[in-house]
Write a protein that binds this DNA or RNA. Structure first.
Length: 460
RNA sequence: GCCGGGGUGCCCGAGCGGUCCAAGGGGACGGGCUGGAGACCCGUUGCCCCGCAAGGGGCGCGCGGGUUCGAAUCCCGCCCCCGGCGCCA
């Protein structure tokens, strides 16, 4: 038995697998194609194996042949079989490649808890904090809270906060996306002084929290080979996000999730080692090819940022519970910062191929009048593990299977900075630094301590 | 980057064209023995396919090709590790 949940369902109940694919708003004929190729592959393999067996029997006899005549006769026979095999072997390889291509293009199953539908069907399940809502955004705010049956306490403000991009460029004058655009392209940025300290402090804050929860701190490779990265993510993500190094078989990671998942590539892990909880720190490089003109201003959606990432390898029976744990960690981190958020159970059509279930943590952005994604926590079950060939071994009975993998943002630097700039902004443009970050600023002589103040001039 | 040495199953390690459908040891797992543990004995311990099962078969010696009736063993390309030289934050 294959052991990969998707392949098992494909072989035993293809119609059920189609249901999962349909929920994702994908074309279920993909399942028919996979089914057909799998059957054809197995049939061909059986035929080829039989012929190979015949050939092996003859070959073994050649060594023991008594006379040179018998030998010559057997060699003739073996050659005849080889000729017969040649075409079949070629066909087998062809089908095998096709089967593999289609199998690897299948998305994961969909967890029964996931709301079915497209983007608009994603379901907020929890709210925290007391958002500041500009009076002009009151209706939009209700659309994002009360519509889902939640009564969220909020503070109405009469002045409209400046958007994070304006704060960056005009009020604090601590960012330059125009010059970065000229020398690197749009969606790049220069940050200066206090915002750089803030970036670093956010990372340290998340690292400190995660490691104190027992997660192992990891600084991973920032590039991976094609054969590895293509097995961590799906093809769409690859096309939309991944930068390639010219002339080399190397690809820049879009998140530490990629090298962390690859840490046990082609390995077996004994059950007593699981769960393995990791926290990676890395820059993230993203093409944002599918984003169009969305969030073009500022540093909300950029080609490069820093992120602290949670990653877990677990036994299958533990992954649901651990999924709650990692989103729980993210919630606690954002509560620590004092940023008002909601948690959204992402609808099936918007899941991404790897995940059976995904929670986003979205922070209220007072200038935009919207909750925006800061964290994404996915349970990938055995989808990545199958592709990366990472198995568990249950000591009792030495049973083997694919591990489950989970990942979640802890803190993504630039996005969280945008949330801080909008949420802790005073009417005069001063930004109050969350108390939780101060320990990570105190140790530096030049770092800001309590506030970041508006400036007349860019520092450089 | 150049020169030299090397990569064998979970680990160690033999093999260097057919006696290898990979020896031997260790570990792990299952069972026997035991009041219990240890020691000891037997079995299992890569992946895949067919089969309800018993069982049968194929592939596998870093990866990919090739030579041959037959490749861990020979040839070509690539990757990685160790040592030396060079370069370097």
């Amino acid at each position: 038995m294959p052991g990969w949940s998707v392949l098992e369902l494909l072989r035993n109940k293809p119609e059920e697998l189609k249901e999962h694919v349909r929920k994702r708003l994908m074309d279920p004929s993909l399942v028919d194609e996979a089914y057909r190729l799998d059957v054809e592959w197995r049939k061909l393999l059986t035929t080829v194996n039989e012929l190979r067996h015949k050939h092996n029997v003859i070959t073994r006899n050649i060594a023991k042949a008594a006379s040179s005549e018998e030998r010559a006769k057997l060699i003739r026979e073996a050659k005849r079989l080889l000729a017969e095999l040649e075409g079949l072997e070629r066909k087998l390889k062809e089908v095998e490649r096709e089967r593999e291509r289609v199998l690897l293009s299948l998305p994961n199953l969909v967890d029964p808890d996931v709301p079915v539908g497209g983007e608009d069907d994603s379901l907020p399940i929890e709210f925290w904090g007391r958002p500041r809502v500009w009076e002009g955004h009151l209706e939009a705010f209700r659309e994002q809270t009360e519509k889902y049956g939640f009564k969220v306490d909020y503070e109405v403000i009469g002045w409209r906060p400046r958007g994070h991009a304006d704060m960056l460029e005009e009020v604090l004058k601590l960012g330059d996306t125009l010059k970065a655009g000229e020398v690197a392209g749009s969606r790049f940025y220069y940050l200066f002084d206090d915002l750089v300290w803030l970036d670093l402090a956010l990372l340290l804050y998340a690292i400190d929290y995660m490691t104190s929860k027992g997660y192992t701190l990891v600084l991973p490779p920032y590039m991976l080979r094609y054969k590895v990265i293509s097995r961590v993510i799906d093809l769409d993500t690859f096309k939309d996000a991944i930068y390639e190094v010219a002339g080399e078989d190397l690809y820049l990671i879009a998140t530490a999730e990629h090298p962390l998942a690859a840490l046990y590539y082609n390995e077996e892990i004994y059950d007593e080692e699981l769960p393995i909880k990791l926290v990676g720190v890395s820059p993230c490089f993203r093409k944002e090819a599918g984003a169009g003109n969305r969030d073009l201003k500022g540093i909300f959606r950029v080609h490069q940022f820093h992120k602290v990432e949670q990653f877990i390898f677990s036994m299958p029976e533990d992954s649901r519970k651990l999924h709650e744990e990692i989103i729980g960690n993210a919630k606690e981190l954002f509560r620590g910062l004092g940023l008002p958020y909601r948690v959204v159970n992402i609808a099936s059509g918007d899941l991404g191929a790897c995940a059976v279930k995904k929670y986003d943590l979205e922070v209220w952005m007072p200038a935009q009048g919207k909750y925006r994604e800061m964290v994404s926590a996915s349970n990938c079950t055995d989808w990545q593990a199958y592709r990366l060939n990472i198995r568990y071994v249950r000591r009792k009975g030495m049973e083997k299977g694919y591990v489950h993998t989970l990942n979640s943002t802890a803190i993504a630097s630039t996005r969280t900075i945008t949330a801080i700039l909008e949420n802790f902004q005073e009417p005069d443009g001063t930004v109050i630094i969350p108390k939780a970050l101060r320990p990570y600023l105190e140790m530096f002589k030049k770092a800001p301590k309590e506030v970041i103040e508006p400036r007349q001039k860019r520092p450089a």
